[in-house]
Design a protein around this nucleic acid. Structure first.
Lengths: 161, 161
DNA sequence: AGCCATTTAGTTGTGCACAATTGAATTGTG
DNA sequence: CACAATTCAATTGTGCACAACTAAATGGCT
């Protein structure tokens, strides 16, 4: 071993402050903290809010479709939807024409909650201090990144298999 | 169904695809998936890898300092560090001069793991298809955002109190 | 029709994030 | 010194992410 490695030239690729993933993770959790405060009034967690957004936009959907919109699987959605159902915001019912599928519908209360949710994006936007174009550009960048990462993870998984 | 609300003009602020937080969250989870595959060889999860990065860079640290670097509290770190200890990568010992504090040190094995971790950033960078300057710019942007969000969450919390 | 691969939700188990609380050690103040 | 306030780690409890598996329903194929 001899003498601590400490190579740390200006290009130490293992430095935390050089890792994009850390900045991303930190920003994601900072958003989480802000949403937590704002959504508490609505009785929603952030992932629950995302589910409600999809339902408000598309109406009733099977769990599968919901998962495609949000990139989440039934392992995450099943318990989350149960909690939304317990809160009286959604109903879950087996599809008549395909008994495997469970369709998620808004209740009256769930539909009504949309009105109160309208102020959420405004409060969030106020917090970022970024203007609309900056947000759009950043979002586009991140989506590019996500596509590249998903493709790479896919390729990696297949190489490993 | 009495006419779905569907206000959806081109500025429906509740549309999922307009929300920066969703892109951020998606990118963060996409990174997670990629790291999961790469770090499996090292026997680390992504948060465990972050802890190891800090230890490789700074050497032994009390849990508190570790948490400041990573923005994590003892509720997250305590069990995580126990798992790293069980894996033989770190030792935890009460500080002699302040019995409240627990110092986390790398074991030989933990120090040695750094060599094998050197290829991780390379593999990640290859997956992003972004060049170094783009990454740097994106990271700077995200860090700005994080600062703004933390400040806003702080202000929000105080207003609520 | 009978059989089999696929699809769809749900369940189980592991690990992380975070709020709230506990308990011990330390520090500040009278 | 005594005692209140603070600091630090750990614990408890809730909820999310994801892998692996189960069970039921479906659709294709012979």
């Amino acid at each position: 071993m001899s003498a601590t490695p400490t190579p740390t030239p200006s290009t130490d690729w293992l430095r935390l402050d050089q890792q994009i993933c850390f900045s991303l993770n930190a920003a994601s959790r900072a958003f989480g903290g802000l949403y937590r405060g704002i959504l508490k009034d609505l009785g929603l967690t952030y992932p629950q809010y995302l589910v409600m957004l999809v339902l408000w936009e598309h109406g009733g959907l099977p769990v599968k479709k919901l998962g495609e919109h949000l990139r989440l699987d039934s392992g995450t959605l099943s318990p989350l939807l149960k909690r939304l159902e317990a809160a009286g915001l959604v109903r879950r019912e087996r599809s008549a024409r395909d008994e495997r599928s469970v369709e998620v519908h808004l209740t009256e209360e769930g539909t009504a909650l949309r009105e109160r949710a309208l102020e959420v994006p405004r409060r969030i936007a106020a917090a970022t201090s970024f203007d609309v174009d900056e947000i759009r550009a950043l979002r586009a960048r991140l989506d590019e990144l996500t596509v590249a990462l998903d493709a790479a993870a896919e390729a990696d998984a297949e190489a490993g298999a």
